[in-house]
Write a protein that binds this DNA or RNA. Structure first.
Length: 481
RNA sequence: CGGGGCGUAGCGCAGCCUGGUAGCGCACCACCUUUGGGAGGUGGCGGUCGUGGGUUCAAAUCCCACCGCCCCGACCA
């Protein structure tokens, strides 16, 4: 936490502030920082730009990993692991790649107390090392396509870090593939974009995204084309949530990644690479969070239901434990909160901060009536439910909450995405959301001067353009994280 | 790197201008009363005042240098 900054708790000495967090409308970035801190997601590490991910934040990441990993494997990829350290010479082989990454590289010059003969780079991404091994392993078209994925950390030196959104070290998944034809590589790249990333974001994170192609200015260094999933955050700004790149034969050429084709000729492999990172946690926070804290969609929530024993009287403690057990038996991710030495209100607020989708309150009054109280985190409504019907009701409410959060996010995206016909209108529209316009009219220099950028390019029908496609395209512009 | 701000207890801050016993709120510990939307009382623990130097009988306070952090601008998942 920074010095010279105040949480709302500091404004009135001796008194609790009215609200737990700075309201979003008052100061969105501050709201974000406070949620991350108070929901115990993460904090800054000792080295600038590094991040300590706390158990609750990491639990969310683990849920994301589990869902993504299943989809990645279903797409045909296998997991592997490549080293953190990469010879600097590898990076230098692909001219555009080094040029793009050199400003943000961490370079190791000493090891074992001696200066190294060749500097070692801490991986900013692994195309180069992985290609060094692809070239060794790959022999025949019969081995294609070859799809590998790795879960790891990477380092890109950042000047202005923000927890989860932009840190010097972050966790991610990077997929790397080799294909026999350009068409097959393209199909894979888009399959990952839509059927792994977009589907995960919509179904699990309940965040609708726009998919499109990056402009040359924003594409991956060394790629022929980059495709992106762009989400709209609560303040109308865009967040790049995932990217899938078509590498062509660029890396294959410099690393000699070749195979023998059906005609018996040696040919360079056609490649893709793709990744999503812990930035997704930031996306989750900003896509659904409200003035009371996080709102985590049930599908991704590490805790879907918290059962609160209001106090340990009238059998409430036992009843709460029993409810929690029943929910767990039905496969619900549930946590029992029986800390009755802490006040009820405090505990409610803490669980709201953490965004647990559904809260079950069990107190003496509920027990006497044979009921429990269910409180939804998404809309704040409460209802009493007979204990016998509780598990069923909880499960149906979780489903409602999941779809409700998606609908809400979709309405925001739809209502704040407007079609415009000039740079001036685009800048105006970007103050509250996205603008869509003819790409030919989108003067990037003029937009950038106003703090706005082209997030992605799409066709008139909304589908993603081919790598070389340039005419009749629409540009989606907005402010970006 | 350019501009602005800030370093005092775990967190948020006051004290500095006008040198002289280091304070407040929250958190934490103990006990009692509490518990259906941030509980109250009483007692307690906790600080090399960012670092180094200088001025002075005396420095959190004045002077110099350095370091760090935060915010705003040029790059990125």
């Amino acid at each position: 936490m920074g010095r010279g900054r105040r949480g709302p708790a500091a404004t009135v000495p001796g008194k609790m502030p009215k609200s737990v967090l700075t309201p979003q409308a008052e100061d969105y970035p501050r709201w974000y920082q406070e949620v991350v801190a108070k929901a115990e997601m993460a904090e800054n590490g000792p080295v600038r730009g590094t991040m300590v991910v706390r158990p609750y934040g990491y639990a969310i990441w683990e849920r994301m990993q589990a869902e993504l990993d299943a989809r990645i494997k279903a797409a045909g990829a296998r997991n592997a692991y490549f080293p953190l350290f990469i010879p600097e010479s590898y990076l230098k082989r692909e001219a555009e790649h080094v040029e793009g990454f050199s400003p943000e590289l961490a370079v190791v010059t000493h090891g074992g107390g001696k200066e190294l003969e060749e500097p070692i780079v801490v991986r900013p991404t692994s195309e180069t090392v992985i290609n060094a091994y692809f070239s060794k392993w790959l022999q025949s078209y019969r081995e294609l396509p070859l799809l590998l994925n790795q879960w790891c950390n990477v380092v890109r030196w950042e000047l202005r870090p923000r927890l989860f959104l932009r840190t010097t070290e972050f966790l991610w998944q990077e997929g790397h593939t080799c294909h026999a034809t350009s068409e097959d590589a393209r199909a894979c790249c888009l399959h990952i974009l839509h059927d792994v990333y977009e589907s995960f974001m919509v179904e699990q994170l309940a965040v609708p995204v726009l998919t499109g192609r990056k402009t040359d200015a924003e594409k991956f260094a060394g790629a022929d084309a980059s495709y992106t999933c762009e989400g709209m955050m609560g303040d109308g700004k865009a967040l790049q949530m995932g990217t899938s790149h078509l590498l062509g034969q660029n890396f294959a050429r410099v690393f000699d990644t070749m195979f023998l084709n059906e005609e018996g000729e040696r040919e360079y492999a056609w490649q893709t690479s793709w990744g999503v990172s812990t930035r997704l946690v930031g996306a989750l926070i900003m896509a659904h969070g409200d003035d009371s804290g996080l709102r985590v969609p049930p599908n991704i929530a590490p805790v879907q239901v918290v059962v609160l024993a209001v106090r340990d009287e009238g059998g409430a403690g036992e009843a709460a434990a029993s409810v929690a057990r029943q929910l767990a038996d039905r496969g619900v991710r549930v946590e029992l909160d029986s800390r009755t030495d802490t006040s009820f209100g405090r505990r409610v607020i803490d669980w709201e901060l953490k965004g647990v989708p559904l809260r079950v309150e069990v107190g003496p009054r509920d027990v006497a009536a044979g009921e429990a109280t269910l409180a939804r985190r998404d809309d704040g409504t409460k209802q009493s439910v007979p204990l016998a019907a509780l598990v069923e009701r909880a499960q149906s409410l979780l489903a409602d909450i999941q779809s409700g959060l998606l609908d809400e996010a979709r309405r925001r995206l739809d209502s704040r995405l407007v079609d415009v016909s000039s740079v001036e209108e685009a800048i105006e529209a970007s103050q509250s959301g996205f603008a869509r316009m003819e790409w030919d009219d989108a003067d990037e220099a003029a937009l950038n001067a106003a703090g706005v950028s082209v997030r992605c390019l799409v066709r008139a029908d909304g589908t993603v353009p081919d790598p070389e496609e340039r005419s009749e395209l629409r540009a989606v512009v907005g402010r970006a994280y």
